Amino acid sequence: MLRYSAFSRDPAGGNPAGVVLDARGLDEREMLAVAAEVGFSETAFLVPADGGFDVRFFSPRAEVSFCGHATIASAVAHAERHGAGGLRYRTAAGDVDVVTARDEDGSWRATLTSVPPVVRDLAPQDLDALLAALRWSAQDLDPALPARTAYAGAWHPVVAVRSRQRLADLEHDVAALERLAAARGWTTVDLVWRQDATTFHARNPFPAGGVVEDPATGAAAAALGGYLRAGGHVPLPARLTVLQGEDLGRPSTLHVAVPADPAAGVAVTGAAVAMP
């Protein structure tokens, strides 16, 4: 069992993930038990297969279809032991290509390319229920970025607010949000504020995993890229920066590349570092 923090070069920042680089012999029950013992929002379990890896992701409470930060963390953990290069992850959401590289300062980073994103309208009654659980109002929302749901390996409602202060002031009803997310199949809720044309601040409550909030969410960042492309909210191709975790004391930086092709996956890049 390895412990890495993704989307940061500082172990005190980013989002911690558990990593098992060779999970052969572990069944689903044992993987869930390991993830619960580690206690991070997700743990990645890799099984070597056909020139790549079969990969499963577990929160302390359940399996999830895809996890971006555990993908980045596990790819860097692999690269530190076997060298930089390309990896193919076979996940429940589909195949995800990952490329690792080492920077001049010796730090490691990885880039994942998501499955093709899907974006859908958010039903008005679901938005009302979501705002009630967040203890926000419709007046808090950014009218230029209408709330929708987006998928790039996992489903997330994307809700944009008018101000950074509104995003910082998050005192949501955890139980109500958990019930709503479970009923709709949402993994996290992607709450964003647009600082400028290409910079977004994000927060991600994660009720499905039994975690109040994720400090960095690669799957949601990829979904956000798909949402922005589908809505025509950014010139394409786009390079975005997502800043997350500041309000939790674990600052994280996610770099997102959105190609113009509407059928193409979204690339998410971040550093990762071993935790003491």
Rank of each mutant, 00 (worst) to 15 (best):
A129T: 09
D173P: 07
A133H: 10
A152F: 05
A154V: 06
L134V: 12
A132G: 14
R148T: 07
P146D: 03
V159L: 14
A152M: 07
L141A: 05
E171G: 04
D169M: 13
P146H: 07
L167N: 05
Q139T: 15
W155N: 02
V158F: 10
V161K: 02
V174W: 07
S137Y: 00
A138Q: 15
A154E: 13
L145S: 11
L167T: 04
G153R: 14
T149G: 04
A176C: 11
P146F: 12
Y151Q: 02
T149V: 15
R166K: 08
Y151C: 01
D140C: 05
W136N: 00
Y151D: 04
A144I: 02
A160L: 13
Q165C: 05
R135C: 11
R162S: 03
P157L: 08
L167W: 05
A138D: 10
P143D: 09
V161E: 09
A138C: 00
V174K: 09
R148K: 14
L130G: 05
D173Y: 02
V161G: 00
L141M: 12
V158D: 07
V159T: 07
V158I: 14
Q165L: 13
A176Y: 03
D140H: 11
L130M: 13
P146I: 09
W136P: 01
L170E: 10
R166Q: 14
E171Y: 05
D140E: 13
R148M: 09
L131T: 11
A132I: 00
Q165I: 03
D140T: 08
R162C: 02
R164G: 15
H172M: 05
V174N: 06
Y151I: 06
A160D: 02
A138F: 06
T149C: 15
V161N: 09
A176K: 02
V159S: 12
Q139A: 15
R166C: 04
R164A: 14
V161F: 08
L170Q: 11
L130K: 03
L170C: 07
A150N: 10
A133V: 00
L170Y: 01
D173C: 09
R148H: 15
E171M: 04
A160G: 04
S163D: 14
A147T: 11
T149Q: 15
R166M: 01
R164K: 09
L134C: 13
H172S: 06
D169K: 06
L177P: 13
D169G: 06
A150T: 06
A144K: 09
E171T: 12
G153I: 10
A138W: 10
R164V: 04
A175N: 05
A154S: 15
E171L: 12
L167A: 00
S137F: 00
